[in-house]
Design a binder for these strands. Structure first.
Lengths: 338, 338
DNA sequence: CTGTTAGCGCCTTCAT
DNA sequence: ATGAAGGCGCTAACAG
């Protein structure tokens, strides 16, 4: 930088200002600086800038997974938006499972490394949220609501209600639920909210709702398959199932096949997401645009970092996409021997 | 840090050494330092450390996508391995398409920001490779070979040959190919290599191989569907297709459905990857373990960063997994009216 | 609009 | 095994 200043015949402070586009630099000075920069192939040192300014131009992206559909989409949207604003995305994968540790991440690892945080699809425990807040960065949540913080999410309750309504309208009377975990008692998690919606819609129609109709699918394909076996084994009278994610719904499709059940003749299945593979498997779903939500979350954080006023919460809609996995229940039930 | 030094009754240099586990620090001194650190909740500043040492403890992960199966798996493996070694992963999404720009990324953005680079699944152009090398970091490639650099990959030629052999052994005589792009002339790209394997196997069996049997699927679901229409429209006599990725193969399944073709009766399809959804859709594939390859790539880079001796290249195997998308061609061809 | 001057917080010789 | 001191490269007041 000193070389650039010398070549341009100015001070390093002016070089700094010119390069950062600050006001109070004459156009000709700026041009001379830029010429010198080009001449010398000068590239500023990010660590020196961080040390001096306290800003890192980096955002931490906390996520339990990157290879699942929703997460991949969201992260892609976040990264593109951040990149366009010349910020870097630091990827932090958290333990997706609760262990003996009270926190699923190490707050110290984030210390002074980022300017802000985006928490993807992770319903943080109150303790974890506290630890994150102690870091002092702006925080934006996506997927799960983040109490006290800006976040981007679906209207999970309505989404679930509409999915269940679709099944009920087709004539289904015994409608099961595949959730993340039935122990999920974090009120702001999608699993919790979608269960609330499932139950609310059933109750409003005076249909059975209860623990006996629920099964844990952990939001994964294999989890959904397992949950399908559990649920259909316990309640062979179920004719329709609302799965809180498409991946679990796909697992349920596998379980149905394992059990010799035809979809949709013997079992109707509806998921949530709008997974790329839905069209191939014919899955009916409540589709969302996850990539766009990722972009929105990143923009929310950019606003916060810039001190710009911004919305606190952004709720995205879902669209019912009917395919071949849902239909009216057949009148005469096919005998089922598990 | 000065506070810690004072509290521990040592100099800042000793604190630095103790914290980094350097030799030449007595056990008791170290303990006193650690006690002071705990007492004061001291966390070192990464930017100060980077500025002083020149090392960032950060690795750049260059990738065109994060939401596609292979990439998500690989990135997950990389991040976990890096994290375990206390390194951070900076995610850089490159333009996946070639544009007017000679480079699909900005080398300056990487300047002094990372200690090393992992290039995921991106067959870099020679110019791009040069630009990356000029940065002066160790580079590890994964997915595509990286000339002059360590890399992790599949034996693409053998994989393709075995896939085609599977079809040929079933009795197929006219076997199409869905590649990334037929213009792909980068010899170290998976698309190129898999095409070489497809052709080699066909030639060895004196079966037809040629441009007329190829179509561009861009390694995506929709691209595969489009390519399927193009290929099957041009060559209705094709009874088997090797798709260079499962996502394209899934797209081909859609195209077949569009055209009223039954799989596998009218058309056999085999892909490459071992995508999670293969079991749901019944896709026969050459399966690989992408997450493990991601871990291996990260370990390779860790070795390079530590100056440890390490292998230059690691080739992973694929396994033929036969499902319901491949079968012997039916003797009497069903009439096809597109 | 531009220059001067202190740091930012740590690492790294070089001594001891 | 430990301490002293310089410097990594930039930003941020404060002058002018």
């Amino acid at each position: 930088m000193a070389d650039v200043a010398r070549l341009a015949g100015v001070s390093t402070a002016t070089v700094s200002r010119a390069l950062r586009g600050l006001p109070n630099v004459s156009a000709q000075t700026r041009d001379r600086v830029l010429a010198a920069v080009a001449e010398l192939d000068y590239v500023p040192s990010p660590s020196a800038a961080s040390l001096a300014s306290g800003r890192t131009r980096t955002v931490g992206v906390l996520t339990p997974w990157v290879s699942r559909w929703y997460f991949g989409q969201v992260i892609e949207g976040i990264e593109r938006t951040l990149h366009a604003a010349h910020l870097d995305a630091l990827l932090y994968q958290l333990d997706s499972e609760r262990s003996a540790e009270p926190l699923r991440f190490d707050p110290a690892a984030l210390h002074r490394r980022v300017d802000g945080l985006i928490v993807v699809g992770l319903p943080l425990e109150p303790l974890e949220l506290d630890a994150l807040e102690d870091l002092g960065y702006p925080i934006v949540g996506i997927g799960a609501a983040a109490p006290r913080h800006a976040h981007v999410r679906l209207d999970d309750v309505t989404t679930a209600r509409r999915a269940v309504a679709h099944l009920a309208d087709l004539g289904h009377r015994t409608i099961g639920l595949l959730t993340g975990s039935r122990d999920d008692d974090i009120a702001w998690s999608p699993g919790f909210q979608r269960r609330v919606g499932w139950r609310a819609e059933l109750d409003s129609r005076a249909l059975e709702s209860g623990v006996g109709l629920e099964a844990d699918g952990g939001f994964s394909l294999l989890g959904g398959r397992h949950a399908g076996h559990v649920l259909l084994g316990r309640r062979p009278d179920v004719t329709g199932v609302f799965a809180a994610s498409d991946e679990m719904a796909m697992g349920l499709l596998l379980a149905a096949r394992d059990l010799g059940l035809r979809v949709p003749e013997d079992l109707s299945v509806i998921g949530v997401d709008g997974h790329e593979m839905d069209e191939v498997t014919g899955l009916t779903t409540m589709a969302q645009n996850a990539q766009e939500q990722g972009e929105a979350a990143a923009r929310l954080l950019l606003d916060l970092l810039a001190g710009r006023p911004s919305e606190a919460t952004r709720v995205y809609p879902t669209t019912l996409v009917v395919r071949t996995s849902t239909a009216a229940p057949t009148v005469k039930a096919v005998p089922r021997t598990p």
